[in-house]
């Protein structure tokens, strides 16, 4: 509340900005729905604050984001929210359902960025990794064959309650190398999961669960998001065989043209390496600029999903395959969950 009044006061006291934006008819305030938590804070510090300083445009954040919320926004036809954070697989799905619009990359005029981040329908703004981690003091696995070998590596596991994470990791434990994972052999993956499910104490839905469960000694090994465990001395971790993925920010279908003009400005800020470095200080995830590594602290490079040493040992999410097969796999997953 207080912040918004402040912003209004600040905007009013800077009449020159008013003239500037009136010329382009671009909105002074747009709304964004993002996934919340530290990630949301990193958007604020890395991109929204610099945008505000340069242009006077305010971006109001709301969280969490889900595909259902996006569908509700579009079907109700309200043009209130312009920007929406979506996972890589979800962008494909949202595109198929006609819930998001194409970006105007010419208007965004981005600084150099990795090609996969420059999607027709979304700006890949944040790389994150899903990796193996463990409680300090247990035997340390080097790959997923060892991670799932509960005889040689005794202890309880904590796995994500999402098939698009579990299936590729299960396949790796049968010896499939990371460049041969897709197209996924779904049946083989479920067969392997059925063998290891007895060692899994918790299937997590929320990213906060695995670190907490390892701290409580409820589980000893987890597959979890890298940003949740790096830099915490209580945990060991390994990027080998992990999944590198990209979060996108898309434009809600039916957004007002004026709001979109403001959105392109935010996208431009998001493409700048120096802003991405600020965001990476808040959360150990990285932006899509090839120049980013040089701006990150040398001693922390090992923590980031996209530093050279980590990017090479991970596989990249195959969003197209999941867009094709996701629904069938989801049903199989529900059936698998009933067998626990």
């Amino acid at each position: 509340m207080r912040r918004r009044t402040f912003v209004k006061a600040a905007a009013a006291s800077l009449p020159s900005f008013g003239i500037l934006s009136a010329a382009q008819a671009q909105s002074k305030e747009i709304r964004m729905i993002e996934s919340g938590g530290l990630s949301g804070d990193s958007i604020q510090v890395g991109y929204i604050d610099p945008l505000k300083a340069k242009t006077g445009i305010t971006v109001v954040r709301e969280s969490p984001s889900s595909l259902g919320k996006l569908r509700a926004l579009v079907e109700s036809g309200q043009g209130g929210t312009t920007l929406f954070e979506l996972g890589s697989g979800i962008v494909q799905q949202a595109k198929k359902l006609g819930l998001i619009e194409k970006l105007d990359w010419a208007a965004i005029n981005p600084a150099p960025m990795f090609p996969e981040a420059k999607n027709e329908y979304g700006f890949g703004y944040q790389y994150f990794s899903t990796i193996m981690a463990w409680r300090k003091g247990v035997k340390e696995p080097k790959n997923f064959i060892e991670f799932f070998d509960s005889k040689a590596f005794p202890g309880k596991r904590c796995l994500p309650d999402f098939p698009h994470y579990c299936l590729p990791f299960a396949l790796q434990s049968t010896g499939v190398p990371i460049d041969k994972l897709f197209p996924l052999d779904v049946d083989a993956a479920f067969k392997r999961l059925n063998e290891i499910k007895k060692d899994v104490a918790v299937w997590w839905k929320a990213g906060a669960q695995p670190p907490q469960l390892m701290k409580d000694n409820e589980v000893q090994y987890s597959i979890c998001w890298s940003g949740r465990v790096v830099g915490d001395p209580a945990f060991g971790l390994n990027f080998a065989g992990g999944k590198a993925d990209l979060s996108y920010i898309a434009v809600v279908k039916g957004s007002k043209p004026d709001d979109k003009l403001a959105a392109w400005k935010l996208y431009h800020e998001m493409s700048l390496a120096e802003n991405q470095a600020k965001a990476a200080q808040v959360i150990s995830y990285t932006g899509p600029s090839p120049d980013l590594d040089a701006l990150l602290p040398k001693d922390k490079l090992w923590q980031y999903p996209t530093s050279k040493q980590n990017k090479d040992v991970q596989y990249f999410e195959n969003a197209e395959w999941w867009a094709e097969n996701g629904e069938a796999v989801n049903k199989k997953w529900e059936a698998f969950k009933l067998s626990l």
């Binding site: 889900s66 595909l67 259902g68 299937w203 529900e334």
Partner: peptide, 18 residues
């Protein structure tokens, strides 16, 4: 995550899939 209940399934169908 080991005790599937209808409310949680509904949440998935509404929010995630959708």
């Amino acid at each position: 995550g080991r005790v599937p209940m209808i409310s949680n399934l509904l949440d998935t169908l509404i929010n995630q899939i959708p």
